[in-house]
Design a protein around this nucleic acid. Sequence first.
DNA 1: CAGCATCCTTCCTGATACTG
DNA 2: CAGTATCAGGAAGGATGCTG
Lengths: 126, 126
Amino acid sequence: MRKENSSNAINGRQLRGDCGTAYTLSLIGGRWKPSILWKLLDGRLRYSELKKAITGVSERVLVLQLRELESDGLISRIVYPEVPPRVEYELTTLGYSMEALLQHISDWGAAHRPQEEDPLPVAVEN
Amino acid sequence: MRKENSSNAINGRQLRGDCGTAYTLSLIGGRWKPSILWKLLDGRLRYSELKKAITGVSERVLVLQLRELESDGLISRIVYPEVPPRVEYELTTLGYSMEALLQHISDWGAAHRPQEEDPLPVAVEN
DNA sequence: CAGCATCCTTCCTGATACTG
DNA sequence: CAGTATCAGGAAGGATGCTG
């Protein structure tokens, strides 16, 4: 039972309506969503492949985030009527339209995050 | 009392270490952070101005998010030793380096979010 | 295989009152 | 003015067992 008129929800909706930034972040804001999108950029994957590729995510959460991505129109869910069941996930056109944005976000992070220590084992003489 | 080795925290740290995407999102992921950064792009603002400019945020949360932005190096906090007190917040170089990224995120959202005429499902949850 | 259902924990956010 | 303290609620994420 969700409280649809909690201040929290109201604030959320308002922000999302306000600017595109909040809307975009609400789509990729889930903890695992970037990872999922990232994997799917290389092509469609089935559920078990995703689960294996994204280490640490529980089934419940993975399914939840997939469902959200689906209802937000970023991915599509393809069910094969077979036994045993087989489901594949694929980016939609909208999903692929995020590629440049994801790349941008990733690049910024890679460029600006504090690197604790260069993990490069190669001796860089300078 | 924080659980530093909960699965939750471990996953968070791991993701942040993994790719730049998660790191970037952890910086701007707070609900109000994009708004704060957005306002500060126009120049430094003092606390009360921010509070007024960002409607709906409570003092506690505003301060928390400001502190996080500060410790992440995106903004700097300038205290004037006066009576009455006076504090201003300003983007750092790192903060300003996000401008293009924020614009990109905002643009994507503005371009792709469902329009009013297409009434989006109003959180059907029963 | 691809998931649901259930229960639980943690984290995030907020309201309100008070202070240097 | 610019916060802090306290109390609270809800949302997100997680562990585990079970099913078509």
